Computed example of a mutant assay.
Amino acid sequence: MDKTARLKELKDFLRIDGNEEDDILSSFLTSAKQYLLNTGIKEDDENSLYKLAVNMLVCGWYENRNPTDPGANNTQVFALKSIITQLKCSQSRG
């Protein structure tokens, strides 16, 4: 999937219209993929769990940009950790 299509998909997920936030979203998208890579998850934009994990990371970072904010709620953190664990397990088998 090309970067423009992936960015559009992300903006749809976040319910963002317009192009004003494209630079920050592109930065978050790149960072989310690197974050997952650093946990041992290979980039796989065809895997729906991978895309959900990327979207959840970007959403959390986008909505909680204030460094003094406590960040995502525990449910979001638990769900993301679970997705990352599933991706790691499935990729180690393949």
Rank of each mutant, 00 (worst) to 15 (best):
M1T: 10
M1V: 10
T4I: 08
A5Q: 10
L7K: 01
L7E: 02
K11E: 02
L14Q: 00
R15P: 05
G18C: 04
N19G: 08
E20K: 11
E20N: 11
E21Y: 09
E21P: 06
D23E: 14
D23S: 10
D23P: 06
I24N: 05
I24G: 01
S26Y: 05
S26N: 13
S27C: 12
S27D: 13
F28E: 04
F28I: 04
T30M: 12
S31H: 07
S31K: 09
A32I: 03
K33Y: 04
K33D: 08
Q34K: 15
Q34P: 04
Q34F: 05
Y35C: 11
Y35H: 12
L36S: 01
L37I: 12
N38F: 05
N38P: 03
G40A: 02
G40I: 03
I41W: 00
I41D: 00
E43G: 08
D44A: 05
D45R: 06
E46G: 10
E46Q: 12
N47Y: 04
Y50E: 03
L52M: 14
A53M: 02
V54E: 03
V54K: 02
N55Q: 10
M56C: 04
G60Y: 02
G60E: 02
G60L: 04
G60D: 03
W61V: 05
Y62R: 02
E63R: 14
N64V: 07
R65W: 07
R65A: 08
R65T: 09
T68H: 13
G71C: 07
A72I: 13
N74V: 11
T75L: 10
V77N: 02
V77K: 05
A79R: 14
L80D: 02
K81I: 13
K81W: 05
S82V: 07
I83M: 11
Q86F: 10
L87R: 06
L87C: 08
C89R: 15
C89M: 14
C89E: 10
Q91L: 08
S92R: 09
R93V: 12
